[in-house]
Structure formats: C-alpha cells, structure tokens
Amino acid sequence: MLSAVAAGLLSLAGGLACAADAGDAEAGRALFLKGSTPACAVCHTLADAGSAGTIGPNLDELKPDAHRVAQAVRNGIGVMPAFEALSDADVQALAKYVSGATGAAQ
C-alpha cells in the first residue's frame, strides 16, 4: 500500500515538473518574441519562434547552451545590449527556452 502511494506521489511530482517545464518554455518563448526591448526575434533567427532576424547570429546554427544565452542577455555581446530590465527568472526562462529550442546541451 505504501509503495503504491509513493509511486502515485512520484508520478504526480513528475507531472508537475513537466507542467512547470512547459510553462517555462512558454514564458521563455514569449520573452523571445516580445518580452524585451528590442525583442530577441527582431535580431535573431530561431525556427521554433518563427523569427528570421539577420542582425544577430542564427541561434538554430549556433545552438548556445543556457549558460551562454544567460551571459549574453545579462552582459550583452558585440552589438547586442545587456537586458538589465529582465529579472533573473526571466533571463533563466529565456535561456532555457533558447537552448531547448535549438537542441543545445542544457
């Protein structure tokens, strides 16, 4: 009986993690498309977001990991400005979205 309850709780926890991951991905996608100024999609190509920007690198080709995306968003890189108005949670959601959408290592 106890093992059945434990299995049920583990299953529920896994389902909640998947729901949270899906929510994070949607939040990250929304930030990429229009949650920052300028929006990432203006400058970058990312197939998952339907963007075809040509100012910054093509993220589908670059496949940056989440750490690299977060660093670029926080500090800027090249002509890309630092996005200081984004919260740490926003930066993490955006970084996780981009790295996941490109198939990069997490």
Score class of each variant (00 low, 15 high):
residue 58 N to P: 00
residue 79 V to I: 15
residue 2 L to H: 10
residue 65 D to T: 04
residue 51 S to I: 13
residue 26 E to Y: 04
residue 48 D to P: 02
residue 40 C to V: 04
residue 33 L to I: 13
residue 94 L to D: 06
residue 93 A to P: 04
residue 2 L to A: 12
residue 98 V to A: 02
residue 27 A to M: 06
residue 71 Q to C: 01
residue 72 A to K: 09
residue 33 L to W: 09
residue 75 N to I: 05
residue 84 E to M: 06
residue 70 A to Q: 00
residue 72 A to W: 09
residue 104 A to Q: 07
residue 15 G to L: 14
residue 75 N to G: 05
residue 1 M to I: 11
residue 49 A to F: 05
residue 51 S to L: 08
residue 81 P to M: 10
residue 79 V to H: 09
residue 34 K to E: 13
residue 59 L to K: 01
residue 104 A to H: 05
residue 51 S to V: 13
residue 54 T to I: 07
residue 70 A to H: 00
residue 93 A to Y: 03
residue 15 G to D: 05
residue 79 V to Y: 11
residue 5 V to I: 15
residue 66 A to E: 13
residue 99 S to T: 04
residue 55 I to T: 15
residue 20 A to Y: 09
residue 14 G to S: 14
residue 30 A to M: 07
residue 65 D to C: 03
residue 13 A to N: 08
residue 16 L to R: 13
residue 106 Q to K: 15
residue 70 A to D: 01
residue 45 T to I: 01
residue 46 L to E: 00
residue 41 A to H: 08
residue 4 A to G: 12
residue 97 Y to C: 03
residue 5 V to A: 15
residue 1 M to G: 14
residue 89 A to E: 14
residue 29 R to C: 11
residue 81 P to W: 12
residue 42 V to H: 05
residue 71 Q to V: 15
residue 75 N to T: 10
residue 69 V to D: 02
residue 67 H to N: 10
residue 78 G to M: 12
residue 67 H to E: 14
residue 22 A to S: 07
residue 30 A to P: 01
residue 39 A to M: 08
residue 95 A to K: 05
residue 74 R to N: 03
residue 54 T to W: 00
residue 17 A to L: 14
residue 76 G to Q: 06
